[in-house]
Amino acid sequence: MEPNSGSWTSYSRYVALGDSQTEGIGDPDGMGGHRGWADRFAELLDAAYPGLHYANLAVRGRRAGQIRDEQLESAVALDPDLVTVMAGMNDLIRPRFDRKSLLTDLDIVFGTLIDTGATVVTFTYPDIGGVAPLVRPLSPRIYALNDDLRMLAEEHGVVLIDVEPVEATAHPLVWADDRLHLNPLGHDLVARAVADALALPGSGDTWRDPLPRTPSTYWHTLAAESVWATRYLLPWVGRRLRGHSAGTGLYPKRPDLLPVLL
């Protein structure tokens, strides 16, 4: 389904499903928690249509199968009229990436949510190889997953926000130091993208605007990659080898539909 048809439908019950990006990692709320693009979008939606109730079921580290098993039933029970789903990246970065299983999980999630009558929104992914050169071998997987997401969105009538061709989404300025999560600027960009896709009053396509170039020398890049690998990549690999996840033992930050408080 093409985003932003030029008309706006009001929503009163918004539920967000996903992993760390939707939970809001990389966007501290100043009180020891995380804000994130879904919180930011909920604020935009509530400003346009006061009285919105919003739940966020996302938990960091969750793969698509876990989102299906842990979040889908709860989301349906909340009877939302708007749902966002950001899922698949935690599957894609695993060494034993099972594309078939991922597509099956996404197909079930999208189909189940669409059957409730809710508007469902999902996303393609930017090429993280442009943000973290050491992981460029994953780029072909990302492009293939994006093609799959386009196909599934078309089949189910899901609103697709296609961020892959938008250069700003792979710009270093919108990513946190770990290069795995968006920073506040990046979370704001995604919130504005969702508002644009749903044609909220006052929204626009400025999230697509190019960002300033950040030139660097070969030696600067090499040094930055070395620091990043030591500080973030190797610890992440170590956790995966031990079977640990950043989300182990954690629960959704906002499991119930509650008013949006600014």
Rank of each mutant, 00 (worst) to 15 (best):
Y218C: 08
I114F: 00
T214Q: 15
G249T: 04
G157A: 11
Y49T: 14
H34T: 11
K253Y: 00
W219T: 15
T217L: 08
L182K: 01
S20D: 04
A75V: 10
R136A: 13
R13N: 04
R13F: 03
D196Q: 09
K100V: 13
F97S: 10
Y251E: 14
L257Q: 02
E164M: 08
R240Q: 14
R208S: 12
H171M: 02
S101Q: 14
I114D: 07
L72P: 02
D147N: 12
I142Q: 03
V159F: 04
L185I: 12
A47S: 14
L44G: 01
R68W: 02
R192D: 09
P165E: 11
E43S: 11
S74Y: 03
L233A: 15
D19F: 01
P252T: 03
G33H: 12
A118H: 09
V135G: 02
D178I: 01
L262P: 05
F123S: 02
S226Q: 06
E23H: 10
D115R: 15
L52E: 02
D27E: 12
T217V: 03
G36T: 10
P3Q: 13
L134V: 14
S139T: 15
G32P: 02
K253I: 04
G130A: 07
T124D: 05
P210E: 08
L82W: 06
L234M: 13
L262I: 07
G61D: 01
W236H: 13
E73T: 15
R242L: 15
L257H: 02
M31F: 14
T84V: 13
N146R: 09
P95Q: 07
D148V: 00
P165W: 04
I93H: 01
R141C: 06
T217A: 11
R94T: 11
L173G: 11
